[in-house]
Design a protein around this nucleic acid. Structure first.
Lengths: 179, 179
DNA sequence: AGCCGATAGTCAAAGCTTTGATCAAGGAGG
DNA sequence: CCTCCTTGATCAAAGCTTTGACTATCGGCT
């Protein structure tokens, strides 16, 4: 599939995929090496990407990655009930509640009581929050572009299509999810 | 690119991608919508996948996702120095140290002093740890297969190739990383 | 031999995550 | 009107993460 699996001595985070697939298929009978490689590659690539975006873009600007995600959905779809913000950002309601404490202290988000339902809490960006996320997202997208440049336009289109297909597929639909 | 961006009312975690791309390009000038869609899709798909694997496979068997990752590298490449385990599993040394406390209490991993360097700690699976990870990984791979079935063999090959290209590309190489 | 910068692992503080419990409020049926 | 089930948000406990500090050790250089 790719290069020769390195010996255990000279492995790194990325080349470990080759090593793992080779060794596992040798040791275990019923393993599907292609599915293994797909998931392993997907996970490691995404980890590296998120780590890069968080450490190079968001942390230097004073945002955590989860904080960025919440501001992002409030920016685009806000004001939102706390529950909706959790759905759209892919976090639990409890996580949003805890995170908004931090964002509120930082003056980026405001809590407000909903009118139609006194249990619900409306979340809305402050002016400072709006400024923060627009500037932050500019830098975020520049870094995204740097990553995307490794692929041609056609390759990017193909990749997006395949990811979407996987995302809407059978396993994804029946997956346990909080979303 | 895909379906009509839904109105803010009926969005969910997945369809939010369309909505976000449309709205952001309307509001911000210099954004590359293709790079945006690529990263957003990649991240959301991977989150959903990891959440499914963790909640459907590993938690019911008593492992956390990080715990699984450490056992996995020790299974395939162990025994390993703590530092190597961190590199191969994509965690910080401190995180491995904390995690191994838990795994050691559970009787799955043993700490041992290295002979060649008295600073180094060797991590090794116990017998119970080996049994745990082999059984756990079987179930893990079955679930991976269910996800992979959404794509044809050719599509999977294409997807893996594109992910690898992205992973070894320019931005990835210069990315801030701990790996 | 002795010094000194580099390295391995751990600890500490702060933040985010999870699940499950709790409490307040909504809403349907009697 | 009242009961009962459901739902929204928060809290609590436990675990994992990060960065930065600290200790012990290594190893090259004088």
């Amino acid at each position: 599939m790719t290069a020769n699996p390195a010996s255990a001595e000279e492995l790194d985070f990325l080349s470990f995929v080759d090593f793992a697939v080779a060794k596992t298929t040798r040791e275990l009978g019923a393993v599907d090496p292609e599915a293994m490689r797909l998931v392993l590659t997907l996970h490691r690539l995404t980890s590296a990407l998120v780590y890069d975006l968080e450490s190079a873009v968001h942390r230097p600007r004073g945002l955590s990655w989860p904080g960025f995600r919440v501001l992002f959905v409030l920016w685009l779809a806000g004001p939102l009930e706390s529950k909706r913000a959790a759905q759209l950002s892919g976090m639990s309601r409890a996580a949003v509640s805890a995170l908004v404490n931090t964002l509120e202290k930082g003056g980026l988000v405001e809590r407000r009581q909903a009118e139609h339902d006194r249990r619900a809490v409306l979340l809305e960006l402050t002016e400072a929050g709006h400024d923060t996320i627009t500037q932050d997202y500019q830098a975020h997208n520049e870094r995204e572009q740097a990553w995307a440049e490794s692929l041609s336009h056609e390759e990017r289109t193909t990749l997006i299509g395949l990811l979407q297909k996987l995302m809407t597929g059978a396993a994804a639909s029946e997956a346990k999810r909080r979303f």
